[in-house]
């Protein structure tokens, strides 16, 4: 069943003439894990903000069409009510720390305080959320004393604790080192496996290939592909449009042209690449293989 529905959404930022999102039609089913890819400026962040209600409630501007989550419509709601439908986390973990709190535990409770959850229930929910993301041992630390990966997990937990129906993540690992990236992706993957509906804007295609149910490709504000990761991430169209796809795909595409890739489907990950290559060694006697 579709939990998120975008119906013919077109959006212009204030004081601009060209729409950044053009006639977007898409649905996300409950429990689905959808990755959004696209070159810089394609509108990934704007799409995230739109589902999360910040477009138009925070950024203003001109929106047409409808954004619906679990049957209610974004433009008819308030941002502070909408964030209970859709949780948003984004790139820079430092800027997501409220600054009003001295410990991770209190930081995570911030959103619950704002919506007036009683203290006993709040403590329970914060503990549960920290367990879910594996950060219980950070509870008493200052949010500012943490590594980027830890801070991002705190930011994610701070959103999860509010129990949104849908989680929207805008390149949550783009400012992270490999260790931080692995930490954060580990949490996202665990959430997806638990049945959370996740929309993730992301550049790291190999990771998407392994874990996303679906990939939506945005190009200049339009959806140009929408389907299974193995199809979308290897499509020729995306390669032509200058999407930064997996290097294994690029290598295999070249290899295919040279007759060194026999499989129908191009690879996205290293494993698929290793599996699919048929090595044709140039041989003076022309025996091949």
């Amino acid at each position: 069943m579709a939990i998120v529905e975008l119906k013919n959404v077109t959006y212009k930022y204030p004081l601009t003439d060209t729409p950044v999102l053009k006639n977007i039609n898409a649905q996300v089913n409950e429990g689905e894990f959808v990755a959004v890819i696209g070159p810089n400026g394609a509108g990934k962040s704007t799409l995230c903000y739109t589902v999360a209600g910040f477009v138009p409630h925070f950024f203003k501007g001109e929106i047409t069409g409808a954004v619906e989550v679990a049957g209610s419509e974004s433009s008819k709601s308030n941002l502070h009510e909408w964030v209970l439908n859709v949780g948003l986390a984004f790139q820079n973990p430092f800027n997501q720390i409220s600054g009003a709190k001295y410990t991770v535990f209190e930081e995570i409770a911030f959103g619950l305080e704002n919506i007036g959850v009683p203290r006993e229930e709040m403590i329970q929910r914060v503990n549960d959320a920290m367990k879910l993301t594996g950060i219980s041992e950070l509870a008493d630390r200052s949010p500012y004393s943490l590594s980027g990966g830890q801070q991002q997990r705190v930011a994610l937990t701070s959103i999860l604790v509010m129990r949104p129906k849908v989680l929207v993540l805008d390149e949550p690992t783009s400012q992270m080192d490999p260790i931080g990236t692995r930490e954060v992706f580990g949490v996202i993957r665990a959430l997806a496996e638990k049945g959370m509906t996740v929309i993730l804007a992301e550049h790291k295609v190999e990771w998407i290939a392994n874990f996303a149910d679906r990939v939506v490709a945005l190009h200049e504000g339009e959806i140009i592909a929408d389907g299974k990761p193995s199809d979308v991430l290897t499509s020729d169209l995306l390669a032509e449009k200058g999407f930064g796809l997996s290097r294994y795909t690029s290598v295999a595409r070249k290899a295919k042209a040279m007759g060194m890739w026999q499989k129908e489907r191009l690879p996205v990950t290293l494993d698929e690449a290793v599996e699919g290559f048929t090595l044709t060694l140039p041989s003076p006697k022309g025996r091949g293989e």
Binding site: H80, E81, E113, N114, G116, S158, M162
Partner: peptide, 19 residues
Amino acid sequence: RAIAIEARAFNSNRVETSI
């Protein structure tokens, strides 16, 4: 920063509680 605190219902009109 503004987006991050709004995402946590900072401007909610419900009566706040405290941890």
